[in-house]
């Protein structure tokens, strides 16, 4: 009954071409590599799903994947509650609002490799401000180039410093949008501070928090520059996250096939976990 107008597709075409160039074609190249073996000279041998099977059975992959999850889990566990706490304690109006907001935004403006370099120098045991202070003033043995625990603590603190602001700003935006009547009603209903947080603030922040967690998950799961500049994956392999390992295989050992297979698995995991997060967190809204 209704006449379909197919001209709309014509307008979508440029986007399709763009997406093809910057996503689809590189990805197909990766898929292509992942099922072949090459020894250079542009010679390729069919390998089937061999690389995938080997990779999924390899201890090295398991270890770096584990470290990746540990890293992402830790920073989410710290940044989300910390961000909410900071947002809750920020003023809601007056002179200090812009001051707080700008201060909060500062770390996010610094380029990633600079953050890595900054923290590297900052934590050097002999000349770094923090390193020197911990070792020589407090007498705590701290050397992230030697001690895996120190290295881990450093990359986590660095990420928290760099990105907690994102959670703060998003939560704050959610908080200031709550009308005063809600707080007044809660007071009259005799609600405790905890109940106000649990039943008013948290539900109203839910949407922005979902976005914050998703962004932080994807970003931290794909993180490369900062830990690479800071620790280079060491000491030993203790901070070799998935991305660092991938680059080592692809560019260090020039094993294109296994590296391609690993990228694809990496990609699928990121996609899967993001989807899972999103569905879980928005599940209630469907009802």
């Amino acid at each position: 009954m209704k006449k379909q107008n197919n001209r709309a597709w014509f307008f979508v075409l440029p986007v399709l071409v763009l997406v093809a160039f910057n996503a689809l074609i590189p990805m197909m190249t990766v898929v292509n590599y992942s099922v072949q073996e090459t020894f250079g000279n542009n010679l390729f041998f069919w390998q089937g799903l061999d690389w995938f099977e080997k990779l999924l059975r390899s201890d090295r992959f398991h270890a770096s994947l584990g470290r990746q999850f540990l890293f992402t889990g830790s920073i989410l566990a710290i940044e989300v509650p910390l961000g909410i706490i900071i947002a809750l304690s920020m003023p809601s109006k007056g002179f200090w609002v812009p001051v707080c907001l700008v201060t909060m935004a500062l770390p996010m403006l610094i380029p990633w490799n600079v953050v890595g370099a900054m923290w590297n120098i900052f934590t050097l045991p002999d000349i770094g401000l923090l390193g020197y202070f911990l070792n020589h003033t407090l007498g705590i043995h701290y050397d992230m180039t030697q001690n895996p625990l120190a290295a881990w603590a450093t990359i986590i603190v660095m990420d928290v410093w760099h990105w907690t602001s994102l959670v703060v700003l998003l939560s704050y935006a959610g908080l200031v949008s709550i009308p005063d009547a809600y707080y007044q009603a809660a007071k009259i209903d005799g609600a405790s501070n905890w109940a106000v947080f649990r039943f008013i603030q948290l539900p109203k922040m839910k949407n922005v928090l979902t976005i914050a967690i998703l962004l932080r998950f994807m970003d931290s799961f794909n993180i490369y520059t900062e830990p690479f500049v800071l620790t280079g994956g060491g000491p030993g392999n203790s901070t070799t996250l998935l991305s660092i390992d991938l680059v080592k295989i692809a560019l260090g050992q020039f094993d294109l096939g296994p590296a391609a297979a690993m990228s694809l698995i990496y990609f699928v995991i990121t996609l899967l976990v993001s989807w899972l997060f999103y569905t879980l967190m928005t599940k209630d809204d469907q009802k």
Binding site: A181, A185, F199, L202, P203
Partner: peptide
């Protein structure tokens, strides 16, 4: 209040 105040999650 003027606008209904309810606890969404409950």
């Amino acid at each position: 209040f003027q606008f209904p105040v309810i606890y969404d999650t409950m």
